[in-house]
């Protein structure tokens, strides 16, 4: 039987209360939302927090809405809600693509968007999707809120730049009209973490790429992003050749590790191919050729 080591359990009744509890319990406390990554790690003693601060009752952190030119996603939004969200799907099909292949339908009922980002698993899907679309996150602490570029959020595997007494409360995605987005993943079986995956967003100026965002996961891309490939693609014709070149550049800057999901060279080749496919599909969507 796998059971976590003992810990103190606290249930937050408000965001302020959660921050107070985090401050009181110190750096060895962890926030638990869906718990679908954290609790399995606790069973294996890969994580052994002294205290869990349960934020599942903070229902005011569960929402998806457009405000001004931003899509706002509450940190406690369940994966199933992001998958089902018409407004998220309308502006960012990349989230629908990604959520369809994150874990399985039952896990998606309880796992949360904010929890996935904070877990900072190097093979997590939404980290790449949010990196691609240039999202930022709002963290709240005892002294107020700050906004962090999602490309600065992850300090390393399973590590974020959040202070021990900061709570991630919201993800903000800038909406720019005329773009298209997509997510492409290769997994060994339903519900598994990716062998590799890539997300892309493309804005066109006629037949030219005006702007592009590329996110990668499970292949050792720094901050889940491919800035060199984005720069190379800007101003280039929106063709398969350009996309394949961007894929090659993205893969050159990855540091995939061999593991049970495959050897490094296979993963690097997937980075090339999945970046290419994501750019191709994002472009088709920007042109209105694909839903």
């Amino acid at each position: 039987m796998q059971v976590p080591a003992p810990f103190a359990y606290e249930r937050a009744t408000s965001v302020e209360h959660a921050i107070e509890l985090l401050s009181r319990h110190g750096p060895e406390a962890r926030v638990v939302a869906g718990g679908h990554s954290l609790i399995p790690m606790m069973k294996l003693r890969l994580a052994q927090p002294d205290a869990l601060i349960d934020i599942n009752n903070l229902s005011d952190l569960s929402y998806i809405r457009v405000e001004g030119d931003q899509l706002l996603i509450g940190a406690l939004t369940r994966h199933a809600d992001l998958l089902d969200s018409a407004v998220a799907g309308e502006h960012f099909p990349i989230f629908r693509d990604a959520e369809q292949v994150i874990a399985d339908p039952v896990v998606r009922n309880f796992g949360t968007v904010g929890g996935s980002l904070c877990q900072a698993d190097p093979a997590e899907d939404l980290s790449a999707a949010f990196a691609a679309v240039g999202a930022s996150v709002v963290a709240r602490g005892p002294n107020g809120s700050r906004t962090i570029d999602v490309r600065q959020l992850h300090a390393g595997p399973y590590e974020t730049v959040l202070e021990p007494n900061e709570l991630l409360v919201e993800i903000r995605v800038p909406i720019r009209p005329g773009g298209g987005s997509a997510y492409e993943k290769v997994e060994r079986r339903v519900g598994d973490y990716p062998v590799a995956a890539a997300g892309a967003v493309v804005w066109l100026d006629g037949d030219t790429v005006a702007e592009a965002g590329i996110g990668l996961t499970a292949v050792g891309a720094e901050h889940f992003a491919a800035p060199e490939a984005e720069t190379a693609l800007r101003g280039r014709p929106a063709t398969d050749d350009s996309f394949a070149e961007a894929g090659r550049i993205a893969a050159q800057h990855c540091h995939p590790q061999p593991d049970q999901r495959g050897p490094a060279e296979y993963k690097r080749q997937l980075a090339v191919e999945l970046t290419t496919r994501a750019l191709r599909r994002a472009t088709a969507r920007a042109r209105g050729q694909e839903a």
């Binding site: 359990y9 718990g35 609790i39 399995p40 869990l52 896990v107 009922n109 309880f110």
Partner: peptide, 9 residues
């Protein structure tokens, strides 16, 4: 809603 009860407290 269906959830996996081995992964919940």
């Amino acid at each position: 809603k269906p959830v996996k009860s081995c992964t919940m407290l």
